[in-house]
Design a protein around this nucleic acid. Structure first.
Length: 881
RNA sequence: GGAGGCAUAGCUCAGUUGGUUAGAGUACUUGCUUGACAUGCAAGGGGUCACUAGUUCGAAUCUAGUUGUCUCCACCA
């Protein structure tokens, strides 16, 4: 049943309809998938956007690509699930919560853990809707009714379940390791969260006197304060210089401790003096040396990077104060040999920028090697594919070199580690229960105060959001999911962890395809960032240009995995396209009298109808193929070209004759073909620019309640007419050639001229085509014949040669004979060159013998055409003599 | 230091297993208020596909090297 339709306003103003349309989709429940549906499922994993953040271009790009895929699949008849989520527990989030509380005069310490979490939840509810409303503005077709939060009850159960399982399998352990400690955030942060920045510093060369006299060894350090924690000096076992010192002792300056000289390959022969001070508690390499050589650990810094009470002289000093003091003391004691300037990369906290302090600490770890193995396998054997493929190299590189993953964080806003300790007897229990009584002494146990790394819970997203560990309908229907869309910067953080987590807990891959996109940069190619202030707010773009324009700009000129620049020109081009579509639709709409969407009988169709339907179907084919292979940019540019150049600039113009003649039989035929192709264009474009396509769809005769739930066009061979398309091309070629020549000769369009078309293909230029020449090539009249010999002499006319015809324009007084001759000669030379090139290629035995037959045939046909062209030009020239 | 990407028109970028005269958008030049659209229409100029060598009948495309540039990882006693 066709639906009633309405007028379109004269100007395209997206703000007038985008919100209304979105609300309508929500009310109709189009976004809510039915897990019991028979249709095949297509599901996408999306990153949970941070609750504390504002929607930025990165989100907008992610979101646009995801939504295009989801809408496309939905229109192809899939039951689609796109789970929205908000926030994850992280240092950044907690920092923002703390900041928000500080403004209310509250602090973490005053509140205590329980009160803090209570406030944080209230705060989450207050701010949590913000990013979702922003995503809705973009047209995201998430199922908002299933929105999840990583700390929601269900998700928390999943996290506990996983933790306990891994612990029982021995894949989670608690141990002492060197971790990156942020003295400001007072938490450990993972390697991936450390940002390196170049800093100017010094290399201090320090002499450690040998015990029992006989000189000293010289070591160098950038962090002299760690000297307090030295428990050895290492030399390379191969180093001849120090061979006889191994096993001897040195006296640690300022401290007076006797520490051994040990042999370890960590000390390199060609670096510095070849002697290395070993501080096992404050350096990851030294920690390893300490472990190999069974050295004691000496902790010298507190949580906030101050010297511990064990060193009364420096106790309580901040690490930098202590550095100064220690250097002074070393200098005074004559231990300081040399100070060297250097610039080096220093690790800083990605959140607060504080210099990281490597510290020994009791933390929880996940053993990575057993988890990484099947995850590597899944990508290697093709069960999971990266698009583009080259990103699997990044993935392998990380997976194969990964070290055990420190998962504990000293935060409150996160999943608390489900481990309990008994103060009385030291027993530890790992359990899903909320409170535990010590199995040995019956006393209540205390839960570990730490929380889990944000990626530990995020890694479970593909299934924890669907209700796992319960067996839900969603899980049955939608897991494993199909596609993950994300930026390459997140492959190691999140993608890899989802893969090994899913393989470990579900025995399944989490998704089969990872579509990687690049970063959005500003017009100068810089990364968008708050500190640079070059970020572009997607919401401002939407307010000014509309969500469709934003989506179009993000999806176009964008190939998988490559960075893109965002500029005003791009968004304007996108808006202009929307405007063009709007106006073309308005034109079609105002010429419509039909009330249903049926196509006319093929016999009633004209050549141009068959031509546009052929071109349309070719477009449909390309678009479907491109989207199936995730080439979103290619699909969109194909549609752009077809819509603008073929449909608007040619077909609509070709139809104007029939449309103006309201009484003709052709009028209705033209209406029906126009309406059919336009509706098809709208459907094809809907995943990219959902709002405008819906608004126009509703204004045309249409079958479905909404374009969103209509079927995506598929290639229809019965509507492809190669012969007619070819014939139409001859006419278009001729029109283009005439326009070209007239423009070259500066003849204004209003100056009309009679056209004489000399051709042996008279059937290509039927009487019905004359109107095209009149409307589009400024012809006053058209006459077609095999030859105009005797009727019109060459010096009376301008000659235009196309592959199938020679067109004569009667020479009015505007044309310069010499200029014309020169032009024809130039064209002759060009064609001769082309013939030479093609004949050389075709007479090349290697080419004819080895190239595919189709290619050779194509070249031959081309040569034939060029030869015909040349013949026309030559004869025109001869006639001029 | 290790790994990877990118280099095509003034600018921003496409270019799908090697096969048109290498394409868009934008900018530029010229002409048009043509009854949907000046957010437009028509026409045009503009490229040694970074450089060098190789493979091939044929290279923007494949290989090696060089230069420039970006990213990730690691290290820095």
């Amino acid at each position: 049943m066709a639906q009633a339709y309405h007028e379109l306003p004269k100007t395209y103003n997206p703000s007038e309809f985008e919100d209304r349309i979105y609300q309508n989709w929500c009310e109709k429940g189009y976004f809510t998938p039915d897990a019991k549906s028979e249709a095949p499922s297509y599901s996408i994993v999306i990153p949970p956007p941070n609750i504390t953040g504002q929607l930025h271009m990165g989100h907008a790009l992610d979101n646009t690509l995801q939504d295009i895929l989801i809408r496309y699949k939905r229109m192809r008849g899939f039951c689609t699930l796109w789970l929205p989520g908000t926030d994850h527990a992280s240092i950044a989030t907690e920092a923002k919560i703390v900041e928000a509380m500080r403004k209310e005069g509250l602090s973490k310490d005053d509140l205590g853990r329980d009160k803090f979490l209570e406030r944080a939840w209230a705060w989450k509810d207050q701010y949590g809707g913000r990013i979702i409303s922003q995503l809705k503005k973009m047209g995201s077709s998430c199922d908002w009714t299933r929105e999840r939060f990583t700390l929601d009850e269900g998700c928390s159960d999943a996290v506990k379940e996983v933790f306990v399982r891994l612990y029982k399998k021995g894949l989670i352990y608690r141990g002492e390791r060197i971790i990156n400690w942020c003295p400001h955030c007072k938490t450990s942060i993972s390697n991936a969260e450390v940002e390196y920045e170049e800093q100017k510093g010094h290399f201090w060369h320090i002499r450690y006197p040998l015990v029992g006299g006989g000189g000293y060894v010289e070591v160098a350090t950038t962090r002299p304060e760690t000297l307090l924690g030295d428990t050895a000096v290492a030399v390379n076992p191969e180093d001849e210089r120090y061979k006889d010192l191994i096993g001897k002792y040195v006296l640690l300056p300022l401290v007076g401790r006797r520490i051994p000289i040990v042999a370890d390959e960590h000390a390199q022969l060609d670096k510095g003096t070849g002697c290395v001070k070993i501080t096992p508690a404050h350096d990851p390499n030294d920690f390893e040396v300490g472990r190999r050589c069974h050295l004691p650990m000496e902790v010298v810094l507190t949580e906030d990077a101050k010297i511990t009470d064990n060193y009364p002289k420096y106790a309580g000093m901040d690490r930098y104060e202590a550095r100064k003091a220690i250097i002074e003391d070393l200098r005074a004691g004559g231990y300081l040999a040399e100070i060297e300037d250097l610039t080096h990369e220093v690790g800083t906290c990605y959140r607060c920028g504080t210099t990281i302090e490597p510290m020994i600490s009791l933390q929880w770890f996940v053993k990575m090697v057993p988890l990484a193995k099947p995850a590597i396998e899944a990508v290697r054997d093709g069960r999971i594919k990266f698009v583009p493929e080259r990103f699997d190299k990044n993935y392998f590189h990380w997976m194969e070199n990964t070290q055990d993953w420190c998962i504990s964080r000293q935060l409150w806003w996160g999943h608390r580690i489900p481990a309990f300790y008994c103060d009385e007897c030291g027993t530890m229990e790992v359990t899903k229960a909320d409170s535990v009584v010590c199995p040995k002494c019956g006393k209540p146990m205390k839960q570990d105060p730490d929380t889990l790394d944000t990626w530990f819970s995020s890694a479970l997203w593909p299934f924890s959001t669907m209700g796992w560990p319960n067996e839900t309908e969603d899980l049955k229907k939608f897991f494993p999911t199909n596609t993950l869309v994300t930026g390459y910067d997140i492959i190691t953080f999140w993608v890899s962890r989802m893969i090994f987590s899913s393989l470990e807990y579900m025995n399944e891959i989490p998704f089969d395809t990872v579509l990687i996109h690049g970063l959005v940069r500003d017009a100068q190619g810089r990364k968008m960032s708050k500190s640079l202030g070059n970020g572009i707010d997607p919401l401002e773009i939407i307010a000014e240009y509309g969500a469709d324009a934003l989506r179009f700009a993000l999806a176009t000129g964008n190939s998988p995995g490559n960075d893109m620049r965002f500029s005003d020109e791009k968004i304007e081009a996108a808006r202009n396209f929307a405007n063009k579509l709007w106006n073309a639709s308005r034109f079609v709409r105002m010429n419509l009298t039909i009330e249903d969407t049926a196509l006319p009988a093929v016999d009633d169709m004209t050549t141009e109808d068959k031509w546009i339907l052929t071109r349309y179907n070719e477009t449909v084919k390309t678009v479907n193929e491109s989207l199936d292979s995730f080439e979103i940019g290619v699909a969109l540019s194909t549609l752009y070209d077809f819509t603008w150049d073929i449909f608007c600039d040619w077909y609509i113009e070709l139809c104007k004759g029939r449309l103006n003649d309201k009484e003709s039989a052709g009028n209705e035929v033209a209406q029906r073909v126009l309406c059919h192709v336009l509706t098809g264009i709208l459907k094809l474009l809907h995943p990219f620019i959902p709002f405008i396509t819906e608004e126009i769809y509703q204004s045309l005769p249409h079958e479905d309640e909404s374009i969103m739930i209509s079927r995506y066009p598929v290639y229809d061979e019965s509507m492809v007419f190669p012969a007619d398309a070819e014939r139409m091309n001859s006419i278009l070629d001729a029109i283009r050639a005439i326009r070209n020549r007239r423009s070259e000769m500066n003849i204004v369009p209003s100056r009309r001229a009679k056209l004489y078309i000399a051709t042996t293909h008279a059937e290509d230029f039927p009487v019905s085509s004359y109107v095209f020449f009149q409307r589009l090539a400024s012809a006053s009249e058209v006459e077609v014949a095999e030859s105009f010999e005797g009727k019109l002499s060459a010096d009376e006319a301008v000659t235009i040669v196309t592959p199938v015809a020679t067109i004569l324009l009667p020479r009015a007084d505007i044309i310069d004979m010499e200029k014309e001759k020169a032009r024809l000669n130039a064209e002759k030379a060009k064609l001769e060159g082309e013939i030479a090139r093609l004949s050389a290629k075709l007479s090349n035995e290697g080419f004819v013998a080895k190239a595919p037959a189709a290619v050779v045939e194509g070249e031959r046909a081309k040569l034939e055409k060029v030869r015909e062209n040349l013949a026309g030009v030559v004869s025109a020239l001869e006639k001029m003599k």
